[in-house]
Design a protein around this nucleic acid. Structure first.
Lengths: 143, 143, 143, 143
DNA sequence: GTGGTCTAGACCACA
DNA sequence: GTGGTCTAGACCACG
């Protein structure tokens, strides 16, 4: 079950944060087709945001074709964004874990590390946006 | 000179994106104390956002103690967020570049990679938010 | 409920006047933690300044940690600047009231009195600025 | 000789601060008819603001009839705002000095004291502005 | 020509 | 209905 964490001081709309985090879970395979998202009620209990805001996020994801809202039942994942290579036990993840451990040991904080990664990505990839991880980036990957 | 790239479809306010990107440049050492940010007019020319929006971002950073707005002169960096270990030629960066190259070779996209990194960070670090690099995160570094 | 009075001819930006007056109310204990500031719309109705200007002032105070803007709810005091000794019934205030009465009886106007007080303060205190009460002065009190 | 102190972080325009402080000196009798204001050059040396800004302030005061700019000679006070009762040795000032000393002893800071005074003034005087000490308040007193 | 304030008004986020 | 972002444009402060 995903657990949303909303940072109200980030300036990023709450519903966008929910979408970002859901997408992230889809990419990682943490969330798979058929899985149920937490109910609006549950999210409200966990995050103290308004149910309407949760529903807004879920509706957006429905329109993007990622989930399906079934009245009375809940919200269910209808599409995967999972990538081979991003599985829990992939070598890439192990190497990454190793690298981040060393980065932290070197005194780098979360924000520093994310800045480094973004910079590394922007080096190879001079296309597109430049923003954050978990960008909605118009969810339209494979299924 | 920093170059801002604004993703208007991300849902993240333009002024937040400017702050994030500036912070990122500060962390990476791309921007150093005394450096001049692009003038509001230059940013406007490059990004097609409104001057007021740029100034809003600059003002926010001024209040955060990162830059100083000097009328008639421009906006200047007053505080570094640079980290030893994040320099251009650091081993950590080289290793990261290597890892991202392999991740891309494995078919992972930018968003996938950022999701992986976020997941890796959240594994060690069960505190805080979940969002982007360059998050305001209440700047509290030193120079 | 605070009531803002904006002097448009003073040369002091309207949003600064709002901040100054709010801070003053906080110092005097007129405004306490948890209290709600007037909504932007109410201030607009009372002062004929633009809602954006009010919000600018509120945002500035939020960044200074004095208040919290809650969408859909309003703006609330989060920190006290109250001082023991500044209460309504303190001896100091009674003495002051007595003194100002005599000053006025002697023909001194508001501006004269404020000039006298400023001079008196500058005598003991050869540090800092010189300006007004309720100066932002980088709010650094506690609650 | 007046000594201007400009607080660049107060949000109040520099030229307004100069006018305010000059007026204050006139009210206190620190500056008298015939006295010479510091030259723009001197003010620049002392405050690091631009000569044009000083001249702007002096010109404003000339238009208000307070001073006269004599090319090649300097700027001279042409009108007094002095008040009997505000002299250096007046009983009112002695009492005030005593009161402020006690206020400081009670732990009140400059801003607290100014807030108290403003409140005291607003109690008797429910007219007008509400702002700071040294408000321009359209200089038009006696001579 | 730089930053800075203010207005007006459209549209969005959230309770 | 609350705050919040963004635009557009006028005018100001300052170097």
């Amino acid at each position: 079950m995903v657990e949303y964490r909303i940072d109200r001081s980030s300036g990023v709309p709450a519903y966008v944060q929910i979408v970002e985090q859901t997408e992230r879970a889809l990419r990682m395979g943490t969330l798979r087709v058929g899985d149920k998202l937490p109910t609006a009620r549950e999210v409200v209990a966990a995050t103290a945001i308004n149910p309407n805001t949760v529903l807004r996020a879920y509706r957006d994801m429905e329109q993007a074709g990622l989930v399906e809202l079934r009245r009375g039942l809940g919200t269910f994942v209808t599409r995967s964004l999972a990538r081979p290579g991003a599985e829990d036990d992939s070598p890439l993840r192990a190497e990454l874990a190793d690298w981040t451990a060393r980065a932290r040991a070197a005194g780098l904080e979360r924000a520093d590390i994310l800045a480094l990664v973004t910079a590394a990505l922007d080096t190879h990839d001079d296309t597109k946006d430049s923003r954050a991880p978990g960008d909605p980036e118009r969810a339209e990957e494979d299924a």
